[in-house]
Write a protein that binds this DNA or RNA. Structure first.
Lengths: 216, 216
DNA sequence: ACCTGAACACCGTTCAAGT
DNA sequence: ACCTGAACACCGTTCAAGT
């Protein structure tokens, strides 16, 4: 797919991304997009074969923008940087995850974090299938957490609001009631915490030969 | 919401779930569901106020079916059981995650794993906000991994197929090429591995007083 | 209490026609 | 090479009407 920033192609794409960022993915409609561009709906089909093509172009554009790599000598710092970047994109563009998931074939740029992570993990003594597994762990956590955050400020999914609405009462969820102190809940902290727990586990992994773990 | 298994209500719901399991969430249409039930589309509106209500009822039905709790004395085993159960549902009903995410307000049963996890973590010496963060880590990993698996057998998202298609060639992703040995990739193993890495990190957490960690 | 059919405001997309 | 308008097959849902 060629990239030409001066083409009408790019202007359409930019409009589409703006619309999605502002009003959500479900608001993106060929007809509404055409209207925003002051053009007939069918005019869009000169630039994109169909809506699928449009979505794919949007995802590609998003993925290419990201710079995952930094050249810190410590592998831990490189992983931190990579997944902080990933999280930042999702937070900046709430629809990005659903956009990627909808694609049959992901944009190439998606493999960048994987490559960087494998390299970093190699230095930590984690290789082969285990390295891939750690990558999946990191990605799923990061994307899951960010999706959750972006879905809305605890849009009904947090125990705090459920409790105050009395929905959790009656002692059926006693441990939630007891632990609840959500005043200072912070997604940034939760993310950093999660990553640190994972990396702590990974560090131990590097110290244990995988043959020893398998035979348990 | 009352549950009456003999009502037409329940038969509609069952049909809808079957349709979604077989043909995917996007295939669920008021009109198609009505057709499958040999009834006029508008007949459905006697049982559900609208499509949203139908989706919510489906999610609730799914969530209630799950038994997350076991009474093993070891907190680790209880967490394993809980999240293996969660993963099993998602694998059995591929649309379940999207179904839950679409809801404004989640079914109550969703808080079951949280309650169980908080209890287990308490025994591990992890409490307060940290316990919530560990729960999010576990959930996001489990759901993310299962969603990914269920989305299709590596539906374009795996480096292996991208490599064989030559899309990753040219040395731009050298660490992927070098580590690739996907012949024996196994989602079950990857899941168990991820959970064990997390729990390893959590065990260390329980041994370190949180005040010491904060001041780093 | 339950079901129906016609109608409305939306979709994505095809197709023939224009410049 | 680009744009248009009418049309088609789909949506979810409202509404007046039937039993």
């Amino acid at each position: 797919v060629r990239v030409c920033l001066h083409s009408r192609f790019a202007r359409v794409l930019q409009r589409a991304l703006a619309l999605v960022d502002r009003e959500g993915l479900d608001s993106l409609t060929m007809r509404r997009l055409a209207q925003a561009l002051k053009v007939s709906p069918m005019a869009l089909y000169n630039h994109f074969a169909g809506k699928d093509e449009l979505l794919r172009a949007m995802a590609e554009h998003l993925a290419q923008q990201i710079d995952f790599s930094c050249d810190h000598p410590d592998w831990r710092e490189r992983i931190w940087y990579c997944f902080r970047s990933l999280r930042a994109v999702v937070r900046a563009h709430p629809a990005s995850v659903r956009l990627m998931e909808a694609l049959e074939e992901p944009p190439l740029a998606i493999f960048r974090p994987l490559d960087l992570t494998l390299q970093a993990l190699g230095e930590a003594g984690v290789t082969g299938d285990d390295a891939f597994r750690v990558y999946f762990l990191l990605t799923n956590f990061t994307l899951g957490q960010a999706s959750y955050e972006v879905r809305g400020p605890f849009k009904g999914m947090d125990p705090a609001s459920a409790l105050t609405q009395g929905r959790l009462g009656g002692g059926a969820f006693e441990h939630i009631e007891r632990s609840l102190a959500f005043d200072d809940w912070d997604f940034d902290e939760a993310f950093e915490f999660g990553l640190s727990v994972i990396l702590r586990g990974v560090e131990q992994l590097g110290r244990t030969p995988s043959s020893a773990r398998r035979s348990k």
